[in-house]
């Protein structure tokens, strides 16, 4: 049996490696199962993977779940400012009633999780450091994700929407003064060449995005016992790797920015609280208004220590 896995990253990216580990483990198990990886968005565009996955036209994907927030609004909680404090907290969230509730939503679309995982990100400014909400006032800012746009707009930033691939040029020509995205995107789009200051994910970080390895549920159930076991075993191994690598990514991005002569700023716990308070009034509030049962989901997430 052959399973098709699609993702948007290069083969050096940690998320490709996660997929590769599962593929290798399954191959090694010798259970007549082969995972064919279509990386670098060679099959589907990043945001267009969820629908084929849910209809069984694609078997597996490594996918930032909030991309499908328009299809299942509950997923917006997987890219919510300040909801996740650090990587260990993220791991606890992945193993909580909150995640069970999300997985129930996924099951509605015939989707299941094989590998849980969060990646963190930070802020970068072309003229100054961004640590507290006051810092973004009046800046043309590009935010990654709807909830972040709502929060940053609440802080008085002007929101400019563009693809992450356009950040570099927009900063270079001065169209954009601040951006918020994942640590790995900051590095892969060489944003360090254009900014003065970088606020990475540190002891506290605002930006965490849930990017699991998903599988079509029916495809999984169509496999025999041995194949399912091989997949789950591979997934377990990959999940441990994912968590370790996720922690290393942030440090690696700091090193790249430092070497490029960019100032590194740190978000203090007070800054974090200020952002979180702002998020409560903006993005959390909006989320609860828009999503049926949203309050319950949010409470479940906030209950995770």
């Amino acid at each position: 049996t052959e399973l098709r896995l699609s993702h948007q990253w290069s083969n050096k990216d940690v998320r490709h490696q996660v997929a590769q580990i599962v593929a290798d483990e399954v191959a090694a198990a010798d259970v007549d199962l082969n995972i064919k990886i279509f990386g670098s968005k060679s099959l589907f565009k990043p945001r267009e993977q969820y629908k084929p996955l849910s209809r069984g036209q694609l078997d597996m994907t490594v996918f930032p779940l909030s991309y499908a927030g328009g299809q299942q609004p509950a997923y917006n909680l997987t890219l919510m400012p300040g909801l996740v404090k650090n990587h260990d907290h993220a791991a606890r969230l992945s193993d909580s009633p909150f995640m069970d509730a999300l997985e129930a939503k996924m099951a509605e679309d015939d989707v299941m999780v094989l590998v849980h995982g969060y990646l963190a990100g930070g802020f970068a400014g072309t003229d100054k450091c961004i640590t507290s909400p006051d810092d973004v006032k009046g800046l043309q800012t590009r935010a990654a994700g709807k909830s972040f746009e709502q929060m940053l707009a609440g802080a008085g930033a002007s929101i400019a929407s563009m693809a992450s691939s356009e950040i570099y040029n927009a900063m270079q020509t001065g169209v954009l003064q601040a951006a918020n995205t994942s640590s790995s995107s900051f590095v892969s789009y060489r944003i360090y060449e254009q900014v003065k200051c970088y606020t990475p994910a540190g002891d506290v970080a605002l930006w965490f995005m849930y990017q699991p390895l998903l599988m079509n549920k029916s495809s999984f159930e169509g496999l025999n016992e041995a194949q399912q076991q091989a997949l789950l075993a591979g997934a377990e191994k990959a999940e441990a790797f994912y968590l370790e690598e996720a922690k290393k990514q942030d440090a690696a991005s700091v090193q790249v920015f430092e070497e490029a002569g960019v100032d590194i700023a740190e978000m203090s716990p007070e800054d974090f609280e200020a952002w979180r308070k702002l998020a409560m009034e903006t993005s959390y509030k909006k989320f609860v208004e828009e999503v049926p049962g949203g309050q319950d989901l949010l409470d479940k997430a906030l209950a995770v220590e």
Binding site: G138, Q140, A153, A157, S158, I159, A160, S161
Partner: peptide, 14 residues
């Protein structure tokens, strides 16, 4: 809106 008013542009691109 962006260059003269320095305000948010959330819906235009889409």
């Amino acid at each position: 809106v962006r260059w003269v008013l320095n305000a948010s542009t959330v819906w235009q691109t889409e």
